[in-house]
Design a protein around this nucleic acid. Structure first.
Lengths: 148, 148
DNA sequence: CAAGATTGAATTTTCAATCTTT
DNA sequence: AAAGATTGAAAATTCAATCTTG
């Protein structure tokens, strides 16, 4: 019997913990690497993808923003030469966002700030079993829905 | 020894789980109660406060938005007669946001959607021990910093 | 005409400057 | 002059309409 109270408490803590870490990441990334958390995540997805490239719609889906929103974020990063757009000749409807070498370098610096923040927040306050619990519970949430 | 990998994994899951639940809450609240998650939270803080009122700066702090941002959110809710502003005679610098009776009624409806969403996400997928673990781990994150 | 991306307009939020009260 | 709140301008995001290609 899961009480409403324990549901509300768990959610509130999840929500606050997320805000706490997100805000710390955003602040440090902007101060130390000159990019926002969203921009970092965008570059990180590209870095992890084959040929360091992803299509616009796929990238928007992973970042949980709208296609229109992504167009603007990409505009800003292209402006800074951290990514490029590539419209392949074979299918000129498609646009790939591609991480450049300069983007890769920026991401490396950003990633180091990023990990330091995680160590200073999650790492400092939680032990390994708690990290496992946090990660495990969160992962279950993300499983596809299986019936009623 | 907490590995970077387990830190990254825990954070990613926390982040995604938060987005998953937030988006579900926002969608259902807007469809069923006609308010956003932020507006719900604002009214919920007021409902829980003595005399159903809080000062602007305190409310902004709890909602994790800027004072300027709060002014606009409050404007919108005043417009809909769910809250009122009160400038006490004793100190005319201060503004209280006060939940109205209509706001209380709206909040009751919203809260029921809210809890249903939590049951359908956190509740359906996680057992009580996992909820405890999630809540407990997240709570530790929120403890004030105690030195290096 | 559907898929994929972009655009203009509208909305929401922040930032810095300002106004009012103490 | 500082505290508390609001404002105009700017930035970021969404939405719906549009443009381009298949």
């Amino acid at each position: 019997v899961t009480t409403t109270k324990s549901l509300l408490l768990a959610w509130r803590n999840l929500y606050l913990a997320n805000a706490f870490v997100s805000e710390a990441l955003n602040a440090r990334l902007q101060a130390e690497a000159g990019c926002t958390l969203l921009e970092h995540d965008l570059m990180a997805w590209l870095a992890a993808a084959p040929e360091r490239r992803l299509r616009m719609l796929e990238l928007a889906r992973r970042l949980r923003i709208t296609p229109g929103g992504l167009t603007r974020v990409v505009d800003r990063l292209v402006e800074r030469t951290w990514i490029e757009r590539d419209r392949p000749e074979s299918n000129r409807r498609i646009v790939y966002a591609v991480l450049t070498d300069r983007g890769t370098a920026t991401l490396a610096a950003a990633r180091s700030s990023y990990v330091r923040v995680l160590r200073g927040t999650l790492g400092k306050r939680l032990g390994d079993p708690e990290l496992q619990a946090l990660g495990g519970a969160a992962e279950k949430l993300l499983q596809p829905d299986i019936g009623s």
